[in-house]
């Protein structure tokens, strides 16, 4: 059942249930600095699909945090460039979409790079070593250890390294790099724009995941993609006596806590019938954005492909800076 217009309006000032950890910004400044210190090491090789006269397909492997080998699909228009670039992020727990699907970006004149989150549905190395349970859900991987060692902290650091790799490619116009993602990909898009604000010039975000964890628990939405929260809750804190500790720790990887750092224009889409990432948790992200932003709501859509949003990407990414809203 979709959220009503009145219910949506009531969330106008909603910013999530838990406050941001007090040291959130210095914590992430330090993580970005760590990622910036990792020596760049990457290879580009032909992909398992052929090149076309107008479009080239490459596997990109690079070394991430802890020496992990991370994979991304890289597609670019043929020619010397410089080409604008989309950093595309995939949903949970999946993999980068097909080479054919990603080709819509070269059809718009963009190169595209789509990283496979390690340990999920695509190639790449998850080095593991997380303290605590790892049986269900990457959200809680590392929740009993130092926040620096959580899965999503490492992942966001790997994205920072990926940004350094692709922005240094000679055919890429580093002044026209944007992010695009839905669900987990939306969370990564916000985090990327927040952690690399000088590099990311535009962000298209559809129903972001990993947000407002206490609200997820309250709503009983701790299942499907959020199942790790229920698992952790049932087995490690059954009476909810320690939520302050672990929800504070999750605050370091809470999408709505990254939002205030985003500076580029954001096109934001929400399906009001979303039962995977409840609309309130998404609005917590949107309301924390202080950058230029536009919200598109789709009352009859749940957590699914929304073609009307995708169609809006063409205008949003292709228009000149300063006229990004159609």
């Amino acid at each position: 059942m979709p959220m009503t217009a009145r219910e949506l309006a009531a969330l106008k000032d909603y910013r999530g249930m838990d406050p941001r950890p007090s040291d959130f910004d210095p914590f992430w400044d330090a993580r970005v600095a760590e990622a910036a210190a990792v020596p760049l090491d990457y290879t580009l090789s032909p992909a398992p699909v052929p090149d076309w006269p107008g479009c080239l397909y490459r596997d990109l492997w690079f070394t991430g945090m802890g020496g992990a080998r991370i994979h991304a699909k890289y597609i670019r228009p043929a020619g010397d460039g410089p080409f604008p670039l989309i950093l595309q992020f995939h949903g949970y727990p999946g993999s980068s979409r097909s080479w054919l699907e990603l080709s819509s970006f070269p059809a718009m004149g963009f190169a595209v790079v789509s990283m496979d989150c390690p340990g999920q549905g695509g190639p790449g190395q998850d080095l593991g070593g997380y303290e605590g349970t790892t049986v269900a859900g990457h959200i809680v991987a590392g929740l009993d250890g130092d926040p620096r060692d959580m899965y999503f902290v490492r992942l966001y650091q790997d994205i920072c390294i990926l940004c350094r790799v692709v922005s240094g490619l000679p055919e890429i116009d580093r002044d026209r790099i944007a992010v695009n993602g839905a669900s987990q990909g939306g969370a990564q898009g916000i985090a990327c724009a927040a952690l690399m604000p000088d590099l990311i010039r535009r962000a298209a975000i559809l129903y972001p995941f990993l947000s407002d964890y206490r609200k997820v628990l309250e709503l009983g939405a701790d299942e499907i993609a959020y199942e790790g929260l229920r698992y952790y809750s049932r087995w490690f804190d059954p009476a909810h006596e320690h939520t302050a500790r672990w929800l504070t720790q999750l605050g370091y990887i809470d999408t709505h806590n990254f939002a205030h750092r985003v500076r580029c224009p954001v096109l934001f889409g929400t399906g009001l019938s979303d039962t995977v990432c409840p609309p309130a948790t998404q609005m917590a992200v949107y309301n924390e954005l202080t950058c230029p932003k536009k919200l598109l709501v789709f009352p009859d859509y749940t957590h699914e492909e929304i073609q009307a949003f995708d169609d809006g990407l063409i205008d949003f990414f292709c228009r000149e800076e300063g006229s990004q809203w159609s």
């Binding site: 479009c55 819509s104 059809a107």
Partner: peptide, 16 residues
């Protein structure tokens, strides 16, 4: 399913 979106269709244009 309704007609595919413009963004979806664009993938083929990249291939010529």
């Amino acid at each position: 399913r309704a007609v595919r979106g413009w963004f979806h269709m664009s993938r083929f244009a990249a291939l010529g």
